[in-house]
Nucleic acid binder design. Structure first.
Lengths: 158, 158
DNA sequence: TTTTTTGTACAGTTTATACTGTATAAAGTT
DNA sequence: AACTTTATACAGTATAAACTGTACAAAAAA
């Protein structure tokens, strides 16, 4: 029987693809949700998602919102339809890599700032050269952050 | 007083650096542990780590082992010392990026295999062209995996 | 050999995260 | 206007992850 096989295969793809999505830092539900939306071309309502994944509507609301915040999913408006509709963005690589790259660069910069603050503190305090070893370590750590930032900036444009 | 300031600053660096380490997929304890070992040049015993971070020796054992598995930390032998000694690897970028890149490539390949298995199943089953839409989606997903693999392979050699 | 020391397996506990159900506000329909 | 429908805030529950303490095996010392 066609439909059964079709559903079965679709479901397997969904599950496997979700594992990859998870690696980008999403919860398993978010990952499955994206994966599901991606395979279902048409925009879906919260109720449909809830039904399809067997999870509460509240869960869908928070998950899909978090996906939307990451620009992986877009809200769609359709004439005459009251419910919110969401669809997955199509260009997988661009979508995921841009978000991922951005996340890393943001975080790295934030950390770099915090560490540079400490560095400033050291140079002020260090009149007696008691902190030399720490200072060089810190320099290495900052350099590390610099390299991370560079690498992840490049990532999206491979 | 020197020592207090020194300890204070060192501790702050430890905490901040740990946040970055965490991003590579480590637990907060693993991250702090690495960060601590990195700042303390000399190799440390489990007891010293336990004392320094205020966590159980068991925790240290599992955490440091997991760091060692990832090649971030090396076990060191010293004449006359019975306890195990561990020290953090120095070249931060190489150490972290190699591990990270490897992790992604591994995972991506694994997923790719699983998905190609499904693809094979489809082409066998699809005598009546009922699965065309799925098939093209699957192709896109596989292409996505290909691109991820490429990107993360490049990452370590930036 | 017996005794002591050290690392880790494992079971149990604590803490954090994911998820649900009810309640409510905002918007749509009659 | 009153009445529905829909999304989400929030509190509470369930599930998973982190962490601890005890117990024990392997190795070293006596």
């Amino acid at each position: 029987m066609y439909n059964t096989i079709h559903k079965d295969i679709r479901n397997n793809i969904m599950i496997e693809f979700a594992k990859t999505v998870e690696m980008f830092g999403f919860t398993s539900l978010e990952a499955r949700l994206f994966s599901y939306l991606y395979l279902e071309e048409r925009p879906l309502t919260l109720d449909e998602m809830s039904e399809a994944l067997g999870k509460s509507k509240t869960s869908m609301s928070t998950s899909v919102r978090s996906l939307a915040d990451m620009n992986l999913v877009t809200r769609v408006w359709r004439k005459g339809v009251r419910k919110d509709l969401y669809k997955a963005n199509k260009q997988l690589f661009k979508t995921f890599m841009t978000t991922y790259s951005h996340k890393w660069v943001e975080a790295t910069n934030h950390q770099k700032d915090a560490l540079m603050e400490i560095q400033k503190l050291i140079t002020e305090e260090d009149s007696e050269r008691q902190l030399d070893d720490l200072s060089t370590k810190l320099k290495d750590i900052l350099e590390f952050h610099q390299l991370i930032e560079q690498s992840f900036r490049n990532l999206k444009s491979t």
